[in-house]
Design a protein around this nucleic acid. Sequence first.
RNA 1: GCGCCCGUAGCUCAGCUGGAUAGAGCAACGGACUUCUAAUCCGUAGGUCGCACGUUCGAAUCGUGCCGGGCGCACCA
Length: 553
Amino acid sequence: MKQKIKQQIIQKLKQYIPEVSQIEDRISLEIPKDEKLGDFSTNVAFLLARTLKSSPVEIAKKVSEMLSGMDTFSKVEVAGGGFINFFLSDGYYRGVLQEVIREKDDFGRIKEGSKGKINIEYVSANPTGPLHLGHGRGAVIGKVLSELYRYCGYKIEREFYINDAGNQIKKLGQSVYARFRQIEEPDYHFPEDGYHGEYIKDIAKELFLTEKEKILSMLSEDDAVEFCANYGKNYLLDRIKEDLRSIGVEFDIWFSEKHLYEHGKVDDAISFLKDRGMLYEKDGALWVRTTIYGDDKDRVIKKSDGSYTYFAGDIAYHYDKYKRGYEFVINIWGADHHGYFPRLKSAVMSFGVPENWLKVMFIQLVKLFKEGQEVKMSKRSGEFITLRELVEEVGKDAVIYFFASKDSDTHLNFDIDVALQKSNENPVFYVQYAHARICSVFREALERLSFNPEENFQADLSLLNQDIEKSIVKYISAIPDMLYDAAEKNQPNKIISITYELAVRFHRYYYGYKFLDPDNLELTYARLYLLKAIRGVLRILFKIMGIAPVERM
RNA sequence: GCGCCCGUAGCUCAGCUGGAUAGAGCAACGGACUUCUAAUCCGUAGGUCGCACGUUCGAAUCGUGCCGGGCGCACCA
């Protein structure tokens, strides 16, 4: 909206003042904090002052005269110093409402792909155990951020990197194998640093039932361990996918680390770095000069025993992403990985990408509270609370809402008691209730007035002249810009407050005004039209978040 | 020791590209249901913006130094 208005202003001014094109980029259009100062204000007059050799106030006066004839504005005035304040006309706002109704889910949405293709990688949990709360938070943030970017016109590729090549997987195999053997020989040695969780036993049991003969007939233990590793990995990956699906999180690409090695991609990346002069040998190992781009020290990419470090795979992985031609890529990591960022960034910089091509968001810790106490372990399994347990306990929508609600940079306290409350204490219900209430009004309209707002209808929107009605329309028209801003700043949590604010306005409206009035059908239609627009925007917001638009509560 | 994140009302958090009386929700207190769902609405009260110094006409916001909490500093992944 803002961009459209800005373009309108620039177009108009260019007709009179050609010099405008010189300063076009620097023209700002801000929403003043004080509503009395109008809907927008601009600094054009300051920018033109020098070129036109006149005072900002003089220019502002002239400019405001030129613009005051436009339909978009009801008033254009010059404020102190030379700021020009605009007041949008009622006609403009009515147009926005019609746009919401007409475009439905596409209101404010920028055509997908018009801004280029980006990649968002998130969760990427090791397939060696169930998802925990931190993964859940990353999943929700990644999902909401993806949808936000999609709304803003980007083509999104959502990616999960499967760490299926290193020691962790080997450990998984050893653990599963040991549990498998223990079924018949309880004293069979279990590796010290193996995975102790109960779920390993479940996998072993399943293997015992289905693949017992096959495993026991294998020639070497290594083969058996590898078989177990593979089986366990697939088993756990399926569970991970299930868990993610339960909160509506999906991926377009499941990228295997193993794939990198099997297809020589690690060697490709290494020879690429070599050509760029990024590598050298020392103490029998191969090092990357990550210090060139600001890392603390250079890093080993190939150990003296000839094997690659994890870093090597990761470089190859990002080299692969680089070759796929994204505008930029976003990685969402747990905060405990922040120390890893400088070295990866250095490696990526050596590909020749722009400074912030690789953006990394760090997700801070999640702490779970119940009855005022921090809960660390699950009573059921004796392990850390899993995402699955949380979803089972409080439901998908609450999980999404709470995980998405805070800035990823801050620690999150998740209070189960609040999430479980089906009352005013729980903001999830608050926003869903707004949607449900509108649906309810529509049902009543059909019942009492034999009028179905679900069908297309017209209304005289000039009847919407109450302050609350105007403020709702104004808020709705600002929402697309707020969403663009949230995406640009990588702050998906903003959508939560945007949604909440809209719900607040609606509930206030609901309480203060009667919508269905058989004696004043014209007004009734106008108000139902507004309600339909509110509901339309709520649905867009819910869709981005992945929260259900509940029709009855 | 070095680095990253956080420290705002009793609790959970917004605000942080500097700007006028620091905002919400919950909890507390007081009101509003013969009404389209009260899972709602209206109001009251509650704050040395961790501390100190500095930059500035002006700092919760920028800088420096402390303090407190979390995390990280491998030829691990």
